[in-house]
Design a protein around this nucleic acid. Structure first.
Length: 317
DNA sequence: ACTATTTCCTGGATGC
DNA sequence: TGCATCCAGGAAATAG
């Protein structure tokens, strides 16, 4: 389940492998859930785009694209248009057509910052089970593959997502701008302000992407354990000193996990296609009933806003 | 303006 | 072994 550290790791891996490469053609599956922008818009935006950078914003992976000289952007592609074949190695799906059912408007672009005419972005959210793989065209296409980008180098970038909680979109007229602030960049004072007057449990506030972007269930629990705060504590009831501790804990946990190359429990393939990652030693997450590593009190699990939340009833107040 | 709850998805784990 | 049921959870949608 990719949270900020995993997404950071994946984005770095992708950047290393595909920066400078050019998207020659795009295949998109028939399932509409993974697509936030319309299939025609995604295909038209990506094709002939050179990848100038790959970076992370919150849990999103952003591919910056520059249009290859001499190729006009297709403003409004004819519906039902056939996509180019993805390779001469020709799999069955390479001749698939776009489904006309893909018609949703792109709601992910909120910034007023304009992109120049030759620039665009591909934005990927991995959801729970999404993965991006760079592979050779002859590699067997995995089940639940929803998108394949054929690159000028001959390789392919594939988006695979069994549960389809992941999302693909493009930004063409304005630069993509994720909600919230980066947890690793926020200073103490603005961090404290985030929680001022909020009656919601601190756990929910940490998961709220409009406040901090990138913290998910695992790192929220781990941060709260290190800060000695129970997940149900009302955000507004937490003292400045305690928030200062949380501020440090959140950054610490995320940095450690990034240093380990992202942690993950299951169901996960990195940018290089390898299975799993080294895992940060969870101190409470997934340890219900097991002794607290500090005081031996059994770790407790409660459900907050539908999310499993783990804490030590003795160490956390 | 906030907050809480429901919904979307599949596959792995569990229970009978 | 087979089959049903439950559960994981990010974020959008819906309800309060």
């Amino acid at each position: 389940m990719p949270e900020l550290p995993e997404v950071e790791t994946i984005a770095r891996g992708l950047a290393k492998r595909v920066t400078g490469d050019v998207v020659e053609s795009v295949w998109l599956g028939q399932k509409k859930e993974p697509l936030k922008s319309s299939a025609t818009e995604i295909a038209a935006t990506l094709e002939q785009g050179q990848i100038t950078a790959v970076r992370r914003m919150g849990k999103h992976i952003v591919f910056d694209l520059a249009r290859v000289a001499g190729v006009e952007r297709v403003p409004s592609p004819a519906k039902g248009r056939k996509l180019k074949k993805t390779s001469k190695g020709s799999r069955a799906i390479s001749t698939s057509e776009l489904s006309p059912a893909h018609a949703a408007a792109d709601k992910s672009v909120r910034s007023t910052q304009a992109l120049t005419q030759n620039k665009a972005q591909w934005i990927v959210h991995l959801g729970m089970t999404g993965s991006l793989r760079v592979c050779e065209p002859q590699t067997e296409v995995a089940k639940h593959t929803h998108a394949i980008l054929k690159l000028a180098s001959g390789r392919e970038v594939r988006f695979v997502d069994p549960r389809r909680f992941g999302r693909l979109s493009v930004a063409t007229s304005a630069e993509f701008d994720a909600t919230g602030v980066e947890p690793l960049e926020i200073d103490l004072e603005p961090f404290i302000t985030l929680f001022r007057g909020r009656k919601t449990p601190i756990k929910s506030a940490l998961l709220n992407q409009k406040l901090l972007r990138g913290v998910g269930n695992i790192y929220a629990d781990e941060s709260l354990f290190r800060a000695g705060l129970r997940p149900r504590r009302r955000a507004s009831s937490i003292t400045r000193d305690q928030l200062a501790k949380l501020h440090v804990s959140v950054k610490e946990v995320l940095k450690e996990a990034i240093a380990l190359g992202g942690s993950s429990i299951s169901d996960y393939v990195g940018a290089e296609g390898e299975e799993g990652f080294f895992q940060l030693q969870h101190r409470v997450y997934g340890r219900e009933g097991e002794p607290c590593i500090v005081c031996k009190t059994p770790v407790r699990r409660v459900v907050i806003a539908g999310r499993s939340s783990h804490y030590c009833p003795s160490c956390q107040k």
